[in-house]
Design a binder for these strands. Structure first.
Lengths: 124, 124
DNA sequence: ATTAGTACTATACTTTTGTATACTAAGAAT
DNA sequence: ATTCTTAGTATACAAAAGTATAGTACTAAT
């Protein structure tokens, strides 16, 4: 387990955290913006096709869906498979890395739920 | 442990995930943008004062720092303490929730590092 | 020839986010 | 009176992200 608190150690600040910082910003970039997580969630739900995703994600425009899928593909989160049938069939699938995001998502959910109970508690 | 894959279960999709989704978007909002994590990292490093944060975070303008600190305060990540000395002293401190973000950050670092090795591997 | 299905792209626009530069408020020290 | 310090705010602007609406390319069936 990496420990972000290592960054508190002045010695290590100089030598080590470069690749931690890079890893962290990678992860942020992958999840950033309004649509990335809804798309990843839909893919986890087993949606694979453009139209299905569009129907499944409230109010996303085809432009945004297209753009975000491209970014996710470039970042190695999504794989795009083309089947030369007619009409053409295209599948979007999560890569292993993409599926591994569930662990990050889970820890975000855990924090979010704890945070909600904490901040509600502190209001009383 | 919450398991995001529960969302794959059609039954649960209807009943349960509302507060998961809320928790998740809370967490995203807390970390979103260019400056939130650098600020949180600086606070973890023990920086507490406006000027220290500004010096510690490369190229942040006072306007952005001010704006982001306000958001972090509203979201219960940071506490602002005013000491009526002269010149006035103001301290920004992470709340318990704020400190707890290290667990999310750690899982993001873990994923990011794994993802880097995976995608490098897959290029050969 | 027209309609329909799939998977998008183009254009123009609005909103949000971030930048640059200058300025303010309050009291203490000189 | 003016200068110093801390902690910001004001104004104007630029860039990035997102929206709205319409249109394209391909093929197959009617």
């Amino acid at each position: 387990m990496s420990d972000f608190k290592e960054l508190l150690d002045r010695e290590k600040v100089q030598q080590c955290p470069r690749h931690y910082v890079l890893a962290l910003t990678d992860t942020l970039n992958v999840m950033n913006g309004k649509w990335k997580l809804p798309i990843i969630a839909s893919l986890l739900h087993g949606k694979t096709r453009f139209k299905d995703l569009q129907d499944n994600i409230d109010k996303i425009t085809p432009r945004m869906l297209s753009k975000e899928l491209k970014e996710l593909e470039i970042n190695g989160i999504v794989e795009r498979k083309v089947y030369n049938q007619t009409p053409v069939l295209i599948e979007y699938l999560l890569t292993e890395s993409g599926k591994n995001l569930t662990s990050v998502i889970d820890s975000m959910i855990d924090w979010g739920m704890l945070h909600r109970t904490e901040t509600i508690k502190s209001r009383w």
